[in-house]
């Protein structure tokens, strides 16, 4: 089997840009660590979205990259300083997770190590570690209305991360509804995985060749556009 190493792939910022298309006005959105945190940069301020971070802000603004503007008391869960936006509020950790557990998050975008064909999420326990850190992802995975995963399609060594059956410890069972990778967009449906979008330069068949899980390719599969 070829590795398709010469084929195009989206970088992290482009993956985040694609994911930002799924963020609609009025939504309450939680962005996990890693690639998902980049998504807010592509949501223009006119599109009114409330970003939640589990350490205790609902409605924060842009990530700050100017050291002079940093407020160490206004950071997201990844420790990045964020803007105080009009309409935001701070909350304690138990209140923050009441918001999550209570089902008030419309969509959470999470990084992952593996996703199963049934929507199983395995994102906390890297191979070779004695333990993993489950963090706040578990509550989000069980209780957000929609769970979108942003991850590369394959590991650095070329192994598929979309698995018929995950082989790492799961964070939450059957919770993922969409996977956005560096080459495709795949939906988890009751009938299995459906390939929705394919990056230019790839055919659906080639995406299947680098995917452990079986993909259904509908007639209306489209080119992934940014």
């Amino acid at each position: 089997m070829t590795n398709f190493e010469d084929k195009p792939r989206l970088d992290e910022w482009s993956m985040a840009m694609r994911a930002s298309q799924d963020v609609r006005e009025g939504m309450i959105v939680n962005l996990g660590m890693g690639i998902p945190m980049l998504v807010s940069a592509f949501v223009e301020p006119e599109r009114e979205v409330m970003f939640h971070t589990e350490n205790g802000i609902i409605g924060y603004g842009r990530v700050i990259d100017d050291a002079d503007a940093v407020d160490p008391n206004c950071v997201n869960a990844g420790g990045q300083p964020v803007e105080r936006a009009p309409g935001m509020s701070f909350m304690s950790h138990d209140d923050s997770f009441a918001l999550i557990r209570g089902g008030w998050i419309d969509v959470t975008m999470l990084g992952s190590l593996q996703v199963g064909a049934n929507g199983d999420l395995a994102n906390y326990h890297p191979p070779g570690k004695v333990v993993g850190s489950i963090g706040g992802a578990q509550d989000l995975a069980y209780c957000a209305k929609k769970v979108v995963v942003l991850m590369t399609h394959r590991t650095k060594s070329g192994a598929s991360k979309i698995m018929q059956q995950v082989d790492l410890p799961i964070t939450a069972p059957t919770c993922v509804s969409r996977v956005i990778t560096d080459i495709a967009v795949v939906d988890v449906t009751p009938d299995g995985l459906v390939l929705r979008e394919v990056l230019s330069g790839w055919t659906p068949d080639e995406v299947q060749q680098v995917t452990d899980a079986e993909l259904t390719v509908p007639d209306d599969v489209v080119e992934l556009s940014l």
């Binding site: 304690s92 138990d94 923050s96 997770f97 333990v131 489950i134 509550d139």
Partner: peptide, 11 residues
């Protein structure tokens, strides 16, 4: 170690 998710820990 007792591993626990943040939400259950907080609650």
């Amino acid at each position: 170690l007792e591993l626990i998710g943040q939400g259950s820990l907080a609650e």
